[in-house]
Design a protein around this nucleic acid. Structure first.
Lengths: 220, 220
DNA sequence: CTAATAGTGTCTCTGAGACACTATCTA
DNA sequence: TAGATAGTGTCTCAGAGACACTATTAG
């Protein structure tokens, strides 16, 4: 091909998890220019031979020790001025993972890596603030219409925990009875016949998701 | 930057319109390799200085004479083997336009340009079949949840026409009374107090959309 | 008055949401 | 038995969907 084009392609991921009943996003502090010392989403350049999805997975695997993560492409941001170094188009991803399934490694271009509460993010590099906002909307949509909440929970969990997930992501409360009624009739989770054991109060039944595959189901 | 990367970025658009009560997609026959003589979506390379959205608009404007078109980014396809010439990532767009607002020009890399019915597409180049499928899903979703149908209709139209649009896109019939009831209570269209004139039967009232802005509204 | 399409109302059933008490466990 | 959380049922109201006839025009 004789096309002249100077565009670089990166991936950036908005990794959501729940810590202490708050929704958090994974960020790293940049230790090189541009935006040195500012916080940014984990990401990196796509390699010539790998698919974009693979690049997103690889990048997260380089920066964290992670398993059972859900990853989906969000949107491609391609404003010519979004990177002061030159033309960089970024394919943004949204990722969802249970806190217990991710550990932070050292990160190539940054010193510090941290989960930040979404409602108290620091100032972000590039257009990453827009990307996080976009990702949050998608996360809410996915919780509303699919069984994806399982990626924010351990395999077996009490119903109360599931409700907490919804309340945290949507930042509002749901009625206990209506919530349980709705979930039950959807048939997306099933009883494990196990119980919580250690509490100083009535132990809850444990449930598990019927299908690990992400399916369209109207939850709320 | 010292990054070595050999990835080219293109845009491809799935342009929908309705012709003779059928949903059609704009295609062009390629007159250069690869996939010479096969049909493909209109598209082209993104220029270094323009945003991706701009590239999609420009490309359509080069290939057609068009006004009042709706364009939205769909998904980015980046399988390393999707283009036999080398690594090409394409940002796919979905476009919606009323037949009267688009005319076909000569097309740079192809001889023939044509609208094809979505249910009778020829074999397509690259992964364009996947892209059309994805775009169709998005089109249906948008009709279901927004007032976007206006882009498939003239400014003033009878309610029957609006219903036809829905029936064509979803390939199923809706009850006349329920459909009109639903649309009326949504308040997305208003009476123009004009009437059709030329028919050999009872003339219909003409309506128009209240807001040109695409808004989230549960239509179906 | 015929042909052709526009336009209109009611009933049933399902599902969403509001709402308060009892059950079970530990210490 | 006190403290803490788990778990459960009913009523009301709104909206979806099924369904058939009358209205208006041109020729």
């Amino acid at each position: 091909m004789t096309i002249k084009q100077s565009i670089l392609v990166t991936v950036d991921s908005v990794v959501f998890t729940i810590i202490q009943n708050k929704l958090h996003v994974l960020l790293g502090k940049r230790d090189i220019a541009p935006f040195k010392d500012m916080w940014a989403l984990p990401g990196g350049f796509v390699k010539d031979q790998e698919s974009i999805d693979d690049a997103a997975y690889r990048d997260l695997a380089e920066e964290t020790a992670v398993k059972d993560i859900y990853l989906e492409q969000l949107y491609t941001f391609g404003n010519p001025k979004r990177d002061p170094r030159g033309r960089v188009v970024t394919v943004a991803y949204m990722a969802i993972v249970a806190r217990e399934n991710i550990a932070i490694k050292a990160w190539a271009y940054t010193k510090e890596v941290w989960f930040y509460p979404v409602d108290k993010l620091p100032k972000l590099a590039f257009d990453h603030k827009d990307i996080v906002y976009y990702a949050l909307k998608r996360l809410q949509w996915k919780l509303e219409y699919t069984n994806i909440a399982q990626y924010l929970l351990p395999k077996e969990f009490p119903l109360t925990e599931l409700q907490h997930v919804y309340q945290i992501v949507f930042a509002k409360k749901f009625d206990v009875r209506n919530f349980r009624k709705k979930i039950a009739q959807l048939g997306i989770i099933k009883d494990t016949w196990k119980m919580q054991k250690w509490q100083a109060y009535r132990p809850a039944k444990l449930y598990t998701f019927v299908s690990k595959k992400v399916e369209i189901v109207e939850v709320l």
